[in-house]
Design a protein around this nucleic acid. Structure first.
Length: 434
RNA sequence: GCUGCGGUGGUCUAGGGGUUAGGACGGUAGGUUGUGGUCCUGCCAGCCCGGGUUCAAUUCCCGGUCGCGGCCCCA
């Protein structure tokens, strides 16, 4: 038999309904925040990603050559493609632009729970308006999505690479040494930091900074430590401004932690950085991450840097919601996954299809979802099918009904019945009043 | 890249060196025909793959593969 490719998944009707419901939530929140959806190709020129992340990334890509020997790859993420799309228009788009996106991404890695070779990312980028206000909008957007999903147990972690940069510059670090120090800080490896030649007092101060536990109010203490290290940081003011805007916008994460040692391990971040963590997911607990970054310089559009955006692990958020629903014994994982107008199953019984199909057409034209029994079997079986297929209502139309001009509508969930005339209008009305 | 545990129909499972590999759910057909989520019957469908040990392997051993975890990594 044929098996699915490793690290890929099939989504049956139930799971797909859930995914569509989540995507719908994302889109609704996006439009509230003024984001417009864009989409880019599933595969791109390989150079796009090596330019962004270096050649080392190739081994994690589904890269291939086309018949003209061009190097291509399935996209591993969506930020670079969106940047590329804008760059192809030479940045000639109304700014600031707020773009959102949703699509599958591909990475050749070991698959495990919460980590697949084909996965979906939802995200956004704000182009052409760097600064704390933009950063606050982006983080607030991410928070709003998570809040709208009903996810309860998540933590927002916010840092600022600019502040770290100021501190490390002051310690005389630059280039690779600075990047290395950032990675160590991001991992909380203070022994490694000491080993890399940073003096003891500074390591101690950095450790203290990493242990700040709380929201905007912790910046007071952070400021003291940073000044004691002899660092003047304008970035600190910006972070303060960003945090206050975030709160003013009404973002209300269940837990907010300012952590100045969050560096996201990526060289292109320059300003605020943030992560959303969900403990219940274990090792793959990061469901969202982003911040302010510089990438447009790769396209000779330096003036558009920095941008701010985030990528959200669509699959991971769903996983977190599933864990939560199971813990709470809730039948609904994503709000709205089971709502929507109920489907009416129409069962023609011993009548010619031509007697029923026009009615089916009219009902659908009137917006009533209708599924049709395509086989002829005994009504008992048909009813069982209607229920199993997810229909909410059922209507058997047989000779008797056609003769009397009335049909019986039955609600599958409890067997409640209602009679009405055989017309699209009456049937729709009867259903909505049941 | 490393590492731990696991793999019996589509799903959940019983079993175990020689069996017609058992059951449940499911799907499908019927129980003389217009109301299901009762019941009965028939049918569908399985020992992850390859090698080894053995007279004999689904069972034991090794490798692979797939799944679930833990590290490393994570644009």
């Amino acid at each position: 038999m044929f098996e699915r490719a490793r690290g890929t998944r099939d989504f049956g009707p139930a799971e797909m309904g859930r995914r569509l419901a989540f995507e719908k939530i994302c889109e609704e929140v996006a439009s509230c925040y003024g984001f417009q959806r864009v989409a880019t190709p599933t595969f791109e020129r390989l150079e796009l990603f090596t330019a962004k992340s270096g050649d080392g990334i190739i081994e994690q890509l589904y890269a291939f050559k086309d018949r003209s020997d061009r190097d291509l790859t399935l996209r591993p993420e969506l930020t670079a493609p969106v940047m590329r799309m804008i760059a192809e228009k030479r940045g000639q788009i109304p700014k600031p632009a707020r773009y959102s996106y949703f699509g599958s991404c591909y990475r050749y890695e070991e698959s495990k729970r919460g980590r697949y070779r084909e996965f979906w990312q939802y995200g956004c980028e704000v182009i052409g308006a760097p600064g704390p206000l933009t950063e606050a909008e982006v983080v607030a957007f991410a928070c709003a999505i998570l809040t709208a999903t009903g996810l309860k147990d998540w933590q927002l972690k916010i840092g600022h690479v600019g502040i770290l940069n100021d501190i490390l510059n002051n310690l005389g670090l630059s280039g690779d040494a600075k990047s290395a120090a950032m990675r160590l800080l991001d991992k909380g490896d203070f022994e490694g930091l000491a080993a890399s030649g940073i003096d003891g007092d500074s390591v101690k101060n950095l450790r203290t900074l990493s242990q700040l536990n709380g929201g905007a109010e912790t910046l007071v203490g952070a400021r003291k430590i940073i000044s004691s290290m002899g660092v003047e940081s304008e970035a600190l003011d910006q972070l303060e401004e960003m945090l206050s805007a975030l709160s003013a916008l009404g973002a209300n994460p269940p837990s907010l932690v300012v952590d100045l040692t969050v560096a996201r391990g990526l060289d292109y971040y320059t300003g605020m950085v943030f992560e959303v963590l969900v403990d219940s997911l274990g090792g793959e607990g990061q469901v969202c991450g982003g911040g302010s970054y510089r990438l447009f310089h790769l396209f000779d559009l330096d003036e558009l840097d920095p941008c701010c955006g985030f990528g959200m692990g669509f699959d991971r958020v769903l996983l977190a919601l599933e864990v939560q629903a199971q813990k709470e014994g809730s039948a609904e994982v994503v709000p709205g996954e089971n709502s929507g107008p109920g489907v009416l199953a129409v069962i023609p019984f011993k009548v010619d299809n031509s007697e029923v199909l026009p009615l089916v057409g009219e009902l659908r034209a009137a917006g009533q979802p209708v599924t049709l029994e395509l086989r002829s079997r005994k009504t008992g079986r048909s009813l069982a099918w209607a229920d199993a297929s997810g229909a909410t209502y059922v209507m058997v139309v047989g000779p008797r009904d056609l003769e009397s001009g009335d049909v019986t509508i039955k609600r599958l969930s409890d067997g409640a019945e209602a009679k009405c005339g055989i017309s699209a209008e009456e049937i729709s009305q009867t259903i909505s009043s049941m």
